[in-house]
Simulated assay, not measured.
Amino acid sequence: MPDFTNPEWWAQVGQFFASVGWNLLTVAGIIVGAMVVAWIFQRMIARIVTRIVSGAKDKANVDDTMALDRSPLAAVRLVQRTRTLGSILRNIVNVSIVVIAALMIVNLLAPTALGSLTLLTAAVGAGLGFGAQNIVKDILNGIFIVAEDQIGIGDVVDLGLATGIVEYVSVRVTHVRDVNGTLWFVRNGEILRIGNMSLGWSRVIIDLAVPADADIPEVEGAMLEAARGLAKDPKWRTRILEAPEVWGLESVSGDALVIRLVMKTRAGAKDDVARELRMRLKNAIDGLGLTLPQLNSIMLTGLEGASRVRGANPPKTKPTQIAPQAAAGAVWKPKKKPRGAAHPAPAPEDETP
């Protein structure tokens, strides 16, 4: 039973309430300080993001970020990457400040509890880390993908797991819509390689197969003329970056010769240019009176793709006709097949007496 008449007891009670009040004031100060620090960092991050986005809008001469779709792609990618990184930084700041403030409060109210909870905290952290390692991997990989601008909204990409147009990029998941309309959700931690077909430039590679008896220089000239006509067309010249090239005879078979034509285009215009170029090549070859066995578009891969990435300028050489070995002392001259003839020319007669 406490002795209410004892002054020492009242002094202990006053000291207890004073310590409790001081602890409460300290906790309130820690919370207020954490909120102030969080507010300062939030304002700094928001200010930096706003300045970068405003600079992109001013440079593109637009008032709304939605209108950046009509501006260069770099501005759109810059705004998207800046906002994503700003969101990541805000989350990191908030979590860090909350954790630090919580540790300070626990250390103030129960100084010995923090040490006793060390093993429990380590065990819980290890369990959560093991269970959430995939999430951490996704987030870290997503941060690098966004920070390094490897992909952006609207890019045509090959992620290995899915191929299509990127519709959304976050720090954990990337949304890719394929040509069939299927929306793929690809975890960033599962992405081992990224093939971005929307950056820089692309190359249209078309292999044109012509009959084995066709005049190669004439066919190459017709192909090059058709491709140059496409490059000069006002509708298409803005999508073509360099003059077309004929890389020459690619392969020879018993019934066809394959000649390769290439054209460097903007990244997003490759398919449209390839369709128009195939149509013009078909018309040009029809004008020569030849029948096309096949007309293929080629995608070079592996070592062949790496060796051809810088292009090629093959020397212009005329094919050398090699006469078959005739009888001893006999001289045989090949007869040219008249263009458009339905039947092959008769074989030369043996001049040996």
Results as ranks from 00 to 15, higher is better:
285 I>T: 06
241 L>Q: 10
293 P>Y: 01
171 V>A: 14
24 L>M: 12
63 D>R: 13
113 A>Q: 11
308 R>S: 14
233 D>M: 04
224 L>N: 14
341 A>C: 02
13 V>Q: 09
90 R>G: 15
210 V>K: 01
213 D>C: 04
24 L>G: 09
120 L>E: 09
287 G>H: 03
150 Q>E: 07
313 N>R: 12
42 Q>W: 11
313 N>G: 12
30 I>T: 10
352 T>C: 08
10 W>K: 13
116 S>K: 12
285 I>H: 03
347 A>M: 14
319 P>Y: 00
305 G>Q: 09
319 P>V: 00
184 W>I: 03
150 Q>W: 06
139 I>R: 12
106 V>D: 14
249 L>C: 03
115 G>W: 03
328 A>V: 13
74 A>K: 14
17 F>T: 10
17 F>N: 06
284 A>E: 04
15 Q>P: 05
157 V>R: 00
164 G>T: 00
18 A>I: 10
86 G>E: 13
319 P>C: 00
195 G>M: 08
334 P>V: 04
325 Q>A: 10
313 N>T: 15
88 I>W: 04
220 E>A: 02
14 G>W: 10
11 A>L: 10
92 I>N: 13
148 E>P: 04
271 D>Y: 13
64 D>V: 07
276 E>T: 08
177 R>A: 00
273 V>N: 02
226 A>Q: 02
